[in-house]
Amino acid sequence: MDISDGDVRDVRGLVRELEQATDVEELRTGAVRELIRLVPADGAQWYRFEVPGAGVQAVAVPAESFHADPTAIYDHPVDHPLTEAMLVGGTGGARRVSDVASDRDWQRTHCYNLDFRPFGVRRHLVSSARDPEGVVGYALVRAGTDFTDRQRDLFGYAHTQVAALERQLARRNRLLAVVAAALDSVGRPGHGVAAVDESGTLRPLDAVAEALLPLVRGDARLAGPDPFRVGDAAVRVVPCAVPGVPRLVLLRDLAAGRAAARGLGLTEREHRTLEHIDAGRTPAEAARAMGISLTTVRGYVASLHRKLAAGHTAALLRRGRELGLLDD
């Protein structure tokens, strides 16, 4: 690879700048800006297209440096020999860096210019790789001199580092989502958290989870994405794709609320209807969730207003909290 120690330091500096991004979209926009400075060019672009050319995504800086409609070119990607190799003979993780022809008049390519002029007028440098969704990469465009071998190698090296940072950011955001879900439950009355280790063993992380886990262990629904109830426990599984980070199981003790409901003469389904209303669901959504008719749910709502002496929805929810039927 024809790059110097100074080039490597420049790429590391670029990566340090991009590490401040809070999401993948911000990272990609920052990357196209930084790549223009790393390898002097008139414009840069991030792109992804699915095999065989549908579902195009693209981010360009400046926006007018590439064609405004990605599908105009991405619908016909295989005329570019690099793209053809990636689509037909590429292997997982394969990566290529290529100049798009200098004085040939390409009609179609997955790296495109503004006005379909011959690529002999504007030079394009492309770095592409396969990912689970298709072909993804970065492209540079400039007028004048060709890109040098060093710039080709530097651009390809920078792409590998930015792609690694993107994967790291995606893993970090998934982990943050898991942590946020756990923190939302920890310390709330009647709420508990358990972890599922690599062997599939459920381990309680607090006293509430320890008390409720005997109801949950061995339930096949723990492997699925949908919340469920078993006994006096409401269960929600929060998956995490980050290696070494366990799945979390969020548990809620329903016993106190159910006891309060029985004391007030509410049926179990009336109580469930109240919980659905508290979650912001419409009567139709509550009916679908409980597998009953909309007319039946409306009857439950009317009964709730009567039994709890509440004239409107806000008063109904307030009374539900005052009486211990709903979580604070």
Score class of each variant (00 low, 15 high):
residue 1 M to D: 10
residue 3 I to T: 11
residue 6 G to N: 11
residue 8 V to P: 03
residue 13 G to S: 10
residue 15 V to R: 08
residue 19 E to P: 01
residue 22 T to C: 12
residue 23 D to M: 11
residue 26 E to P: 03
residue 27 L to G: 04
residue 31 A to G: 04
residue 36 I to M: 14
residue 37 R to H: 02
residue 40 P to E: 10
residue 41 A to R: 09
residue 48 R to E: 13
residue 53 G to Q: 11
residue 58 A to E: 13
residue 62 P to L: 13
residue 64 E to Q: 14
residue 67 H to C: 13
residue 69 D to K: 12
residue 69 D to C: 04
residue 70 P to T: 05
residue 74 Y to R: 08
residue 76 H to W: 10
residue 83 T to C: 14
residue 92 G to R: 13
residue 93 G to I: 00
residue 93 G to E: 01
residue 94 A to H: 03
residue 96 R to L: 15
residue 102 S to I: 05
residue 103 D to N: 05
residue 105 D to S: 03
residue 107 Q to R: 07
residue 108 R to I: 00
residue 108 R to A: 03
residue 110 H to V: 07
residue 111 C to I: 10
residue 115 D to H: 05
residue 115 D to C: 00
residue 116 F to Y: 04
residue 117 R to D: 07
residue 118 P to G: 01
residue 118 P to A: 09
residue 118 P to W: 00
residue 124 H to I: 13
residue 131 D to Q: 02
residue 137 G to L: 09
residue 139 A to L: 08
residue 140 L to E: 06
residue 142 R to G: 06
residue 142 R to T: 05
residue 148 T to S: 15
residue 148 T to A: 12
residue 152 R to K: 15
residue 155 F to M: 11
residue 158 A to E: 06
residue 159 H to I: 04
residue 159 H to T: 12
residue 161 Q to I: 04
residue 162 V to I: 15
residue 162 V to T: 06
residue 163 A to D: 15
residue 164 A to V: 02
residue 166 E to H: 03
residue 167 R to G: 14
residue 167 R to P: 05
residue 169 L to E: 10
residue 170 A to F: 06
residue 172 R to T: 04
residue 173 N to K: 15
residue 173 N to S: 12
residue 176 L to N: 02
residue 178 V to D: 00
residue 179 V to W: 00
residue 179 V to Q: 06
residue 180 A to Q: 08
residue 180 A to V: 03
residue 185 S to Q: 08
residue 186 V to F: 03
residue 188 R to Y: 03
residue 193 V to R: 07
residue 194 A to I: 12
residue 196 V to A: 13
residue 198 E to M: 12
residue 199 S to Q: 14
residue 200 G to H: 10
residue 201 T to L: 14
residue 207 A to M: 04
residue 208 V to F: 02
residue 209 A to S: 04
residue 214 P to A: 09
residue 216 V to M: 05
residue 219 D to H: 00
residue 220 A to R: 14
residue 224 G to Y: 01
residue 226 D to R: 13
residue 229 R to C: 07
residue 230 V to Q: 01
residue 232 D to T: 09
residue 237 V to R: 15
residue 241 A to R: 12
residue 244 G to T: 03
residue 244 G to I: 03
residue 244 G to N: 03
residue 246 P to N: 01
residue 246 P to T: 02
residue 247 R to Q: 11
residue 247 R to G: 05
residue 249 V to S: 05
residue 249 V to I: 09
residue 251 L to M: 07
residue 252 R to S: 10
residue 252 R to Q: 12
residue 256 A to K: 10
residue 257 G to L: 06
residue 262 R to K: 13
residue 263 G to P: 04
residue 264 L to G: 02
residue 265 G to V: 04
residue 266 L to S: 00
residue 271 H to L: 15
residue 272 R to T: 11
residue 273 T to W: 10
residue 279 A to H: 09
residue 287 A to N: 06
residue 289 A to N: 05
residue 289 A to F: 00
residue 291 G to L: 14
residue 292 I to M: 15
residue 294 L to D: 15
residue 295 T to H: 15
residue 297 V to D: 08
residue 297 V to I: 15
residue 297 V to N: 08
residue 303 S to V: 02
residue 304 L to E: 05
residue 306 R to L: 09
residue 317 L to G: 01
residue 321 R to K: 05
residue 327 D to A: 09
residue 327 D to F: 00
